[in-house]
């Protein structure tokens, strides 16, 4: 009886310890949770959405943000936004070739050794908007626009965070002092207490971000006629960045399904073998 009592007390203690983890949540930035076509073990990317998302990146984000791990060929690989089963080698994909051709990349003229610009090929990396970190900071009021190649994996919340941030630019509440070059965003991490002149218990959530609101209605014209709202652009670019953070993730899930089925059958067979081999042993 006593032992049970102590055990219950120990269990109770563990609950007391675990509970405040949830209740003691302080003022956290706003995180909106969306349904994504690619979530879950059977989720798949929506190709049309990836194509729209790429357009948002290309026309808006890429003027400040690099994607150093991405090549144009990635756009045409299986699972990519412009994959065409007719062109197994994405370097041959005419659509990807055309997309690359519109963009100039740096190269070296092998005749003269001069630095030149030429149209990109599918084998080229996405060119970075700034030659180095200092140039990037100088053009952005001292802030460094992060590389977006793995941004969805590098931020807690993943695509939900990207969407929340893109749609988190709200009119700053009265009483919040905003310094020049800063923008209020309800989904950006920060502590606004020093800049808040209102009620101490009602400090607004969110933080200051150097990036001005990048998206606006009709800023990008979608080729498939989707309405070009800020929410739509944000959702599509978040999906594109989620794909870019791990272009092989569809392959991973498909391979995983086969591996799991194999292991499941193997486990069942082993279990019955085990029962059969042990049938005459008393244990």
């Amino acid at each position: 009886m006593l032992r049970k009592g102590i055990a219950l007390a120990a269990l109770g203690l563990s609950l007391v310890v675990a509970a405040p983890a949830a209740s003691a949540a302080e003022q956290k930035p706003v995180m909106k949770h969306l349904e994504w076509s690619f979530q879950g073990p059977f989720g798949k990317f929506d190709t049309a959405q990836l194509q729209r998302g790429y357009k948002v990146y290309r026309e808006v984000c890429s003027s400040c943000h690099s994607m150093n791990l991405m090549h144009f060929r990635n756009l045409g690989q299986p699972g990519g936004p412009f994959y065409d089963p007719e062109y197994k080698n994405p370097n041959d994909n005419p659509y990807v070739k055309a997309l690359a051709k519109d963009i100039q990349v740096n190269d070296i003229d092998t005749e003269t050794g001069d630095t030149i610009q030429r149209p990109a090929t599918p084998a080229d990396k996405f060119p970075a908007p700034f030659p180095n970190e200092y140039a990037a900071r100088a053009s952005n009021g001292g802030a460094l626009p992060p590389d977006l190649s793995v941004i969805v994996k590098a931020r807690a919340g993943g695509p939900n965070y990207i969407y929340s941030l893109m749609t988190g630019y709200k009119a700053p509440p009265a009483g919040l002092k905003i310094n020049p070059g800063q923008n209020y965003n309800q989904s950006f991490a920060g502590d606004l207490t020093p800049f808040w002149s209102g009620d101490h218990h009602k400090v607004p959530v969110g933080g200051f971000i150097a990036m001005p609101p990048p998206l606006a209605p009709d800023k990008v014209t979608f080729d498939d006629g989707s309405p070009s709202t800020v929410e739509q652009q944000a959702k599509d670019v978040a999906a594109f960045l989620a794909w870019a953070s791990e272009p092989k993730q569809m392959e991973r899930k498909q391979f995983g399904l086969g591996a799991m089925i194999y292991l499941l059958i193997f486990s069942v067979l082993l279990y019955f073998s085990y029962r059969r081999i042990w049938r005459n042993v008393e244990h």
């Binding site: 073990p41 991973r252 292991l263």
Partner: peptide, 30 residues
């Protein structure tokens, strides 16, 4: 060998859930 084999196979199933469906869940985003 058969009992360990069965347990290993079940363990691999759990390992597979992490590798194939939530490979980043045990790491830190940063």
């Amino acid at each position: 060998t058969v009992k360990d084999g069965f347990a290993i196979s079940v363990f691999l199933l759990m390992y597979g859930v992490f590798v194939f469906y939530m490979p980043d869940s045990l790491g830190d985003a940063i």
